[in-house]
């Protein structure tokens, strides 16, 4: 019950944030780019023609009326029309979103599976060789431009060695699995389509690792420092004194408490990975939101850019809400306030 109340409270607290996000995106999309009417009509427009279109588009209304219209549009799923694809932006987002979600979730999975054990090992062998190794690895990961790592992967594994695919989501000739979630690996598993599953999974490897490289560094560093703190506490010494095996003490006792700060960081990491998707997807021609946004930038397709921005912000705060709730569920010491 407590958990429900907590979630409810958090959702209420999200309302001002949502309003703020809409004001900010409204400001960016409607106030910064100069006069949209002039942009649409081009350099040869007459003042009368511009005035007419301004009136028609409602640009002469007071700002709060325009804002009201903008928000009303968002609530009805109207994010404008992409000037490049000539489709409603919302339809485009629907089409590209599952690919980004799949890639980001895959990258997060790699991050957790590698980052947390690396951090634990690093902390348990503090200042010894494994620790030095992981620390350097994490440092490089955080300082490295992911899109550059992607280029190197492409060069090595796709162009030189030819062992992994370097673009797209499926091999040529493999048809996508029946649409359920839009995430090919998941849909293929659900429909038992192993050919598509294998192909989709192989295509995820390079972009997934690329996107995970940065976040692995972040999670490893956090796990390490959190574990170091926990490992000094009395109850760990007790567990060791009672003769618990090293692994049992580490993973059974220490990690349980050391993992808490790491979980909060996961939300931020997810945001980082989502943001990084813009770069990584464009390296691997991954047909997701990032590639869509970059395309939109190239063709000055502004409604599309704003649609992606809005969707990613919504996703980011939702994920943080989920993670905070998880945090409260896992840690009984917190009483939902």
């Amino acid at each position: 019950m407590d958990a429900l109340r907590y979630v409810f409270k958090r959702i209420l607290l999200m309302i001002p944030i949502l309003i703020g996000i809409s004001i900010l995106t409204f400001f960016i999309s409607n106030t910064i780019p100069g006069d949209p009417a002039r942009l649409i009509l081009g350099p040869k427009a007459t003042p009368d023609g511009i005035e007419e279109l301004r009136e028609e588009m409602g640009l002469n209304d007071p700002l709060y009326v325009q804002y009201g219209r903008y928000v009303n549009g968002i609530f009805h799923g109207d994010l404008g029309e992409s000037t490049y694809s000539q489709q409603p932006v919302i339809d485009d987002l629907e089409r590209y979103f599952p690919a980004t979600l799949e890639l980001t979730l895959f990258a997060m999975l790699i991050t957790v599976l590698i980052g947390i054990p690396f951090g634990v090992i690093s902390a348990s062998k503090k200042d010894k060789l494994p620790d030095q190794f992981t620390r350097v690895f994490a440092l490089l990961g955080v300082a490295m431009p992911a899109f550059w790592l992607g280029l190197l992967f492409l060069l090595l594994f796709y162009l030189k060695l030819g062992i992994l695919p370097g673009s797209g989501r499926l091999d040529n000739g493999v048809s996508p699995p029946d649409m359920i979630t839009g995430m090919y690996t998941v849909d293929a598993l659900l429909t038992g389509n192993m050919v598509a599953f294998k192909s989709a999974l192989i295509h995820l490897i390079l972009p997934g690792i690329t996107q995970a490289a940065v976040t692995i560094g972040m999670i490893t560093r956090m796990t390490r420092s959190s574990m170091l703190e926990v490992l000094q506490s009395d109850y760990i010494r007790t567990a060791q004194a009672k003769g618990g095996s090293e692994n049992r003490v580490l993973y059974g006792h220490a990690l349980r408490n050391g993992i808490m700060p790491v979980i909060t960081l996961l939300g931020m990491t997810f945001g980082h990975a989502l943001g990084g998707s813009v770069l990584v997807e464009s390296v691997f021609s991954w047909p997701g939101l990032g590639k869509y946004a970059v395309n939109a930038i190239t063709y000055l397709d502004f409604p599309a850019v704003m649609g992606v921005t809005l969707l990613i912000a919504l996703l980011f705060i939702t994920v943080n809400l989920i993670i905070d709730t998880m945090y409260h569920l896992i840690d009984p010491r917190l009483k939902y306030n």
Partner: peptide, 16 residues
Amino acid sequence: SFPGIILAMSIAAALG
């Protein structure tokens, strides 16, 4: 509440 690079991307895209 925006991933940094996304917000920067949309502002930069608006400005040109």
